[in-house]
């Protein structure tokens, strides 16, 4: 029998299981009679085994909590973003006058960014007006002024009032709880010279905080156009907004808010 010669690469492929069965059989036949070949193959098997064993401790090392937390946070943010972007399932229907979705074509893709950005933009919206407007701004950095806070704690959903001291119209739309079980209110504010702001405010400790707001484009007066409510719907599904409360539940919940506020 003539001894076949095999290259290192072929032997390595043999050791790594990367050879076709015919070649494997040929090498195995020669190994029966050629110890040198066995040694050469053994080197490739050993280096693999040893490399694995040498780096095993690194695998067993606990991943720093900080790193895990950072990655989990990224994943959570990504998931929240996906929920915001997915508006196929709305938390609840709203009895608005739906308009043709002319704006929704472009509103929808930016709904996600809107939901994140609008709160920051609020101050700008209110501050952009006259001095009077700036002084009378309804909220600053998400904290609500007394007139609005009072309206949030008193006006039943479906009712509309004029805010004390400001001529803006306030309209309560719904009351619900978010994923943290905080009491939230969806509402709209029309200013005389500006368009409608569609907003959500939730209780945080003893105060209301605006967690969402979008300036609805178009004419003021009347209900916000459908396009802005799509952003709102996306936001509501992101915070896992519960179903709107019944009138009785709402009265009870608002009474509790007023009681706590009075203390």
């Amino acid at each position: 029998m003539t001894e076949e010669t095999f290259s290192d690469e072929i032997l390595m492929r043999f050791a790594d299981g990367e050879l076709d069965p015919d070649m494997v059989a040929r090498i195995e036949r020669v190994m029966e009679i050629d110890d040198r070949l066995v040694t050469r193959v053994a080197m490739f098997i050993e280096t693999r085994t040893q490399a694995q064993a040498a780096l095993k401790p690194l695998l067993d090392e606990p991943v720093p909590e900080k790193l895990v937390a950072a990655v989990e946070q990224m994943i959570e943010a990504k998931r929240a973003g996906e929920r915001v972007a997915t508006v196929s399932v709305l938390p609840f229907g709203r009895g608005r006058i739906a308009r043709p979705p002319s704006r929704s074509q472009w509103m929808l893709p930016i709904a996600a960014s809107l939901a994140a950005a609008v709160v920051g933009a609020l101050a700008g919206y209110w501050a952009a007006g006259t001095n009077e407007r700036t002084r009378g701004g309804l909220w600053v950095a998400g904290v609500i002024r007394p007139a609005l806070a009072q309206a949030l704690a008193t006006v039943e959903s479906g009712k509309e009032i004029r805010l004390a001291g400001i001529s803006d119209r306030f309209r309560a739309i719904a009351t619900f709880r978010n994923d943290s079980r905080d009491l939230c209110r969806e509402f709209e504010v029309d200013s005389q010279d500006r368009s409608t702001v569609v907003s959500v405010a939730c209780r945080s400790g003893d105060e209301w905080r605006v967690s969402f707001a979008v300036v609805a484009p178009g004419d003021a007066g009347g209900y916000a156009p459908a396009s802005s409510t799509e952003a709102l719907d996306a936001y509501l599904s992101a915070i896992e907004a519960g179903a709107p409360m019944s009138a009785e539940e709402e009265i009870k919940a608002l009474a509790e808010v007023r009681q706590k506020g009075a203390k």
């Binding site: 050879l19 494997v24 190994m31 110890d35 066995v38 040694t39 053994a42 280096t47």
Partner: peptide, 17 residues
């Protein structure tokens, strides 16, 4: 200095996949 001494039995079974 990984040992490359013949370990015949291991090698014969050495095809991993």
């Amino acid at each position: 200095g990984i040992s490359t001494a013949p370990t015949r039995s291991a090698v014969i079974k050495g095809v991993r996949k």
